[in-house]
């Protein structure tokens, strides 16, 4: 199947981390406009043949175009929608919520699950990536971020340095001494806490 027909008949499932827009392919757009024009012309012709006045036939043609193009659009959109539902049914179907979150966030959620078991209370979180920062903050609730917290969580932050020999954590102007490792998840994902 070439590009046009593939775009038209096999829409990809919807995806994304946010839901601001659902794009439709140029092929689908073309098809909807083509059906709209054809339905209008057909409606006009049929209603003129039924001896409607021109204005009346135009009005009926517009209604015909609305319903024909709308139903075609719905057919295609709902087909794309069903692909998404089927895909999610395979991915998430039958799982408890915790496992669904693990599927969704992968290593990040695994890290958060482990962090929850070791972080004693409030924490300080460093990550240059806004998504990682906010998402971790959200997933860690009811544990809360606080500037004076004794525990530091680091996620992929090149500015943060922890020296296990000297037990010192530094990040920019911040220097915390007497920090012991609490969890080492990976080279750039770890938790340290004041001894």
């Amino acid at each position: 199947m070439d590009g046009f027909w593939q775009q038209l008949l096999l829409p990809p499932p919807i995806s994304g981390v946010t839901i601001n827009t659902v794009w439709i392919s140029p092929a689908a757009r073309t098809a909807v406009y083509a059906v709209m024009a054809a339905a209008f012309a057909a409606g006009l012709f049929v209603f003129l043949a039924k001896r409607y006045r021109l204005a009346g036939a135009v009005r009926r043609g517009i209604l015909t175009a609305l319903f024909a193009a709308g139903i075609l659009y719905s057919l295609r959109a709902d087909f794309g929608w069903s692909l998404w539902v089927r895909q999610d049914l395979r991915t998430f179907g039958g799982l408890p919520t915790e496992e669904k979150l693990l599927k969704l966030d992968g290593a990040l959620y695994d890290f958060v699950r482990r962090a929850r078991t070791v972080v004693p209370g409030d924490y300080l979180l460093f990550s240059p990536d806004q998504y990682l920062l906010w998402r971790t903050e959200y997933l860690l609730l009811p544990l809360r971020k606080r500037t004076s917290a004794p525990t530091v969580i680091v996620l992929a932050d090149p500015q943060a340095v922890y020296d296990p020999q000297k037990k010192v954590f530094t990040r920019g102007d911040l220097r915390l001494e007497g920090m012991a490792p609490l969890l080492q998840y990976g080279p750039d994902a770890y938790i340290v806490t004041r001894q």
Binding site: V17, I19, V85, D88, G93, K100
Partner: peptide, 24 residues
């Protein structure tokens, strides 16, 4: 309804603005 029951909260503005408050 089915799709809602499959996915946990995933869209940015939901968890970053609305659900974070709810959870708190």
């Amino acid at each position: 309804f089915l799709e809602t029951s499959l996915r946990p909260i995933w869209a940015w503005d939901t968890w970053a603005n609305w659900s974070v408050g709810a959870k708190l």
